[in-house]
Design a protein around this nucleic acid. Structure first.
Length: 557
DNA sequence: GCCGTTTTCGGCCCGACTGTTTTCAGTCG
């Protein structure tokens, strides 16, 4: 059974071919359907089984039929036929920056150039010289792009946690520039998508030239691709593209809205505006020639009689309809978190016993960070019985030290991390506050009922993948467990987190207090929870500290 | 190919940037 991603890629492929064939609106129709399908929180086969494919935005009669055929047979006759009409190399040429479907088609039909390699040869031989529309600059631009693309992996989206530290460094550098007032990263980064294709930075500033100059000289910048009056595009040393735009303060909200997207959210807003005799663009919202908003996003939404919509929800998944009815539920925020349920103490030997010095330093650091965030508890993973004893021996000190009048007490809970096999006997003596269940290669699946019963309160962590998520969410629901959300290859992403939330399974949001300050895990995990629509009551570690740490085992005297 | 509190037909976001143009086409986001 094809996955949603495979179906989306199929339609993207169709769109590319139709583009080269010069079709005007069909490609966008297929792309829209592809985007909708890619962002579904459910498997397409389940939607098809309920006969609700047509409820997916962008899916009409023809595409519904194509989905059904592809799901049933794993192939699509229409696509197979299309593929024969265009040489396969043409589609590779589309991946070259600055080279679009029109140009690729001309190369193919007028010059019999069908692959990037043939294109490089043609340029080398001067076959493009004198061709209408191709001056020396254009030819050089294409040549450089073809050379740059050769041997390079196709452009891929970068995991957001990888882009996060870079993004923070760039905005930090920009905010230092004199005359820079506002500075925000828009795009899918602001929506906290799992991956980002590029970074869109918006700035208001008095002196544009200085901003561009400073930005292009940041150490992370490898090359400046283009620079106009309002926009600069650069490529970072890690290959990520960054667009920097300087906008007027009165247009900042409009630009932020526009460049945050998503595309489908924007399209919906524009059609809503049109219905009301308004016009939206990246400079503001207008009635005729009168600007009725643009300084802030709130102004923009208000002009459409909509409540402000958090960026994480802007996917045209019903959030606009909800915002028309009144304010949206307030999503969980960092300040709602009351503690962390999954802390590790740093150790020099992975998996090994922690040294006394590491232990003391680790607990001190953890306690200080937790206290700075006004946390009431931290669940600390102990790797052995002796570690558990150590934690107990310092926990009283920590408690006393931090439990002063000006801050709440910090409770440290013993936590045991196990896989689906259950708790090894030596850990049973630890009497953990709760158990963190972590699927392993040997035990990828939820434990059987007999083991589940013995585990007691549990947090399921490091669950990834569509099928695994479903199994574990079901298990968590049946066993009263919570499930951790976060970035990384085997962590619950926002789609799976939504599934958990909709099933009534509490989420656990890592806060990053046990990690270096620049580690983005906490910020990204919070974003994923918000994308899933989580409000504070959906998050276990957003409940009052006393409630969360109730029943944690008493420490030895 | 999709879609409809202006429509079952006739629209479909739109502006910046670049290069090649003498008023525009292609690409991108």
């Amino acid at each position: 059974m094809p996955t949603n991603t495979e179906v989306a890629e199929l339609f993207q492929g169709i769109a590319d071919i139709l583009d080269v064939q010069g079709e005007k609106f069909k490609p966008e129709a297929y792309r829209r359907a592809a985007r909708s399908i890619e962002s579904l929180t459910e498997e397409l086969s389940a939607v098809a089984a309920r006969d609700e494919l047509r409820t997916i935005p962008g899916v009409g009669e023809a595409i519904e039929e194509k989905i059904k055929e592809f799901l049933a047979t794993g192939k699509l006759d229409y696509y197979e036929r299309l593929r024969k009409e265009v040489p396969p190399g043409i589609l590779e040429m589309l991946a070259i920056p600055g080279l679009g479907p029109k140009t690729a088609r001309r190369f193919w039909q007028e010059l019999k150039v069908e692959t990037p390699a043939q294109l490089a040869d043609a340029i080398q031989q001067g076959r493009l010289n004198g061709v209408a529309g191709f001056g020396p600059k254009k030819i050089e631009q294409i040549r450089a792009a073809v050379v740059a693309a050769q041997g390079m992996p196709p452009a891929t989206r970068m995991p957001i946690e990888q882009a996060f530290p870079i993004a923070l460094r760039l905005t930090h550098g920009l905010r230092e520039v004199r005359g820079v007032e506002q500075c925000e990263i828009a795009g899918s980064f602001r929506r906290r998508r799992e991956t980002v294709g590029d970074l869109d930075i918006l700035v208001t500033a008095t002196d544009r030239e200085t901003v561009f100059d400073t930005f292009s000289k940041l150490p992370e910048v490898r090359e400046v691709r283009l620079r106009g009056g309002t926009k600069e595009t650069v490529i970072l040393t890690n290959g990520l593209q960054v667009d920097l735009r300087i906008v007027d303060p009165g247009e900042f909200g409009a630009a932020l809205l526009y460049f945050t997207g998503s595309k489908d959210h924007n399209v919906m807003l524009r059609s809503l505006a049109r219905d009301r005799g308004l016009k939206i663009n990246e400079y503001g919202i207008f009635r005729g020639d009168d600007r009725v908003g643009g300084r802030t996003e709130e102004e923009m939404y208000r002009a459409l009689s909509l409540a402000w919509i958090p960026p994480e929800l802007r996917e045209n998944h019903g959030e606009i309809e909800a915002a028309a009815k009144g304010p949206l539920p307030t999503l969980v925020e960092a300040t709602n978190l009351t503690g962390d349920l999954h802390c590790h103490l740093a150790r020099t030997v992975p998996g090994g016993d922690i040294t006394a010095r590491e232990f003391t330093a680790g607990v001190d650091r953890l306690a200080a960070t937790a206290r700075a965030r006004k946390f009431g508890y931290a669940g600390v993973v102990v790797a052995s019985v002796s570690e558990s004893g150590r934690l107990d021996s310092v926990a009283d000190d920590v408690h006393e030290h931090l439990g002063r009048a000006d801050s709440p007490p910090l409770r440290l809970g013993r936590v045991v991390e196990v896989d689906g096999a259950g708790i090894p006997p030596e850990f049973a003596a630890v009497k953990p506050a709760y158990v963190i269940l972590r699927p392993s290669a040997a035990h990828p699946d939820p434990p059987p009922p007999a083991v589940s019963k013995k585990l007691g309160a549990a947090v399921v962590a490091h669950v990834g993948g569509d099928a695994a998520s479903r199994k574990w969410v079901a298990w968590a629901k049946a066993n009263g467990a919570a499930i951790e959300v976060g970035p990384g290859p085997s962590r619950l992403d926002s789609t799976a987190a939504r599934l958990a939330r909709e099933s009534g399974v509490p989420l656990v949001v890592p806060t990053g207090i046990d990690r270096p300050a620049e580690d983005p895990t906490g910020a990204v995990a919070l974003g994923f929870a918000r994308r899933a629509g989580a409000v504070p009551t959906d998050v276990r570690n957003a409940a009052p500290a006393a409630e969360v740490s109730r029943g944690w085992p008493k420490r030895k005297a």
